[in-house]
Structure formats: C-alpha cells, structure tokens
Nucleic acid binder design. Structure first.
Lengths: 135, 135
DNA sequence: CCTTGACCCTCCAGTGACTGGAGGGTGCAT
DNA sequence: ATGCACCCTCCAGTCACTGGAGGGTCAAGG
C-alpha cells in the first residue's frame, strides 16, 4: 500500500507519516519504483501513533508506548504508570489554565470596554496594582 | 542598566530579553562599550511582556497589546476584545484537556496494572474494539 | 504516442518561543 | 596580572510537524 492510502487509513497527513519514518518510528518496505510499501501492521502502528498523539502523548512517550505495545510480554503495570503520569500532567495543565482563566476573567470584568482609554487589563500587565509598587 | 539587571527585574532570562529584542519587541540603547542599556521604560515593557506571556498571550498578541499599551488614546474596548478572545481560547483548551482526561481515566481504570501483559490502554491505542478483528 | 493529473520521491527551510553553547570582549577586584 | 562575572554575536537545537521546490511514476483518455 502506498503512503497516501496508509496515511488515510491512519488518519494522518502524508507529511506526518514521512516525518514519523524520518525519526525512526516506522520503517516501511520499498517497492521497485522507490515508493514506500505499507502493510497492515505498519498501518496499525500509524493509527496507534495517531491515537496516542491525540491523547497528548509526546513522540518520545509514543516511542515508549510502541515498544511496550510490541513487547507482548510486558506488564500492564508499566503502561498504566505512563498513562497515570500523563493524567497528572493533564491535571496540572488544567489547573494552570483555570488560574489563567480566573485572572483574565477578573481583568475583563473590571474593564468597562468602551471608548475611554483607561483599562485595568493593561494596568495589570504594566504591573500597576493599587497600593503596591513593583518598580 | 545592563541586560542582566533588566532581565532580573522583569523576571525573564537574559536570553529571552535578547530574543525579544531580536524580534523587535524592545530596542535598548547601547553604551560606548557595546553593552545594551535599559532604562525604566524598557524594564517596564519587559515586565509587561513577562506578565502577558505568562497569561498565555502569544508573542504576536503581546505585540498588539504593547502597541495598545503605548497608545494612550486607544479604547479599552480594543484591549477587552483581545482578552475575551483569549478567554475563549483558554476555555476551549480546558474543554479539550477535560475530554482527554476522561478518556485516559477510563483507560487507566480499566487496566489492572499488574504483571500480566493484557492492557486495555494499549488495546485502545491499537484501535481494538471488542468484537472486531483488526489483523 | 502524448498529455493530463494524481500520486510519489528527496531535500531544504520555516514555524513559535525560546535555549544552549562557542568564542570572544569588558569591568572590577585582588 | 589574574580571576571572575558579566557582556557581546552568531549558530544550532528543541518539538512536531508543515510547506514548497524540483523532480519521477503511473493509469487513463485522446
């Protein structure tokens, strides 16, 4: 199967499939004309990658996950640990975004948003808290 | 003031301050020895940038915010609109992360996490829905 | 046989927002 | 004179792609 079809089945852009090959994640055979030749296993691997990436795993984590996946004797514990670490990451990111959201909401609410120039948002960015000097 | 001191006051790494200069966000004077010379205004600008970046504004958005900040006659409405757009972005990101979190939690819960090799997490990544053979 | 168009190839460069390092100059204290 | 912290410029690397140039291949239609 050519790269286009494999990419379509895995839900990835062709460019990305090439990229995954260039960093050693997949190694398709070549036909006599030089075209890459993907079999079912490779397409599976690409789909795996697509799914794992969309779940927020980095390429390096995907590499680990893939080798775990390929090793049919590994303990599920190892995979679970990686996934749990990722869960904690996601929780941290959500918490950080919530803080951000609260701060920005506060600022937006405080800003009258009209023609006048004075704006609490910029004042905050400039470090001008009332009663506190930050210079 | 040298770059080191300016960076310290703004809460940024020196490298980042150099970078901001290289992309035209700040333009410090130079002393006779070639060293950059930062005044209060510039330090303020750097601190503004630090804060805005930490609030999740991109460099391009910071550029817009800065020019708004420098234009003492702009309407607060313009600033508010940018901040509101950012708020929507943040909400989208949080929602996406929550979906991710739910999926991964589900997977982690389903995985017994012991010495045995069978693992719902990898099964999911491999696209193995129950009752369907995929190679 | 020729053309058209979709597909494929490789290689290079760019994205965003820095970060690290090499290789050298400056300023101040000892 | 030496040491050290600081400063300079320029280049390369990060992450995970993405875009494009400049070509080759293949099947269909005329």
């Amino acid at each position: 199967m050519n790269v286009g079809e494999a990419a379509r089945r895995a839900g990835l852009p062709v460019k990305t499939v090439h990229y995954y090959e260039s960093i050693g994640l997949v190694a398709p055979a070549r036909k006599s004309n030089g075209y890459r030749d993907y079999d079912q296993t490779l397409v599976h691997k690409l789909a795996f990658l697509q799914r794992a990436r969309s779940l927020g795993f980095s390429i390096d984590e995907c590499r680990g996950l893939l080798s775990l996946y390929e090793d049919r004797d590994r303990a599920s514990r190892d995979v679970k640990a990686i996934a749990e670490g990722k869960l904690a990451d996601i929780e941290r990111k959500i918490a950080a975004l919530r803080t951000l959201h609260a701060t920005l909401t506060h600022l937006v609410d405080a800003c009258h948003g009209d023609d006048r120039p004075d704006c609490p948002i910029l004042d905050d960015l400039a470090g001008a808290d009332p009663g506190m000097d930050r210079g």
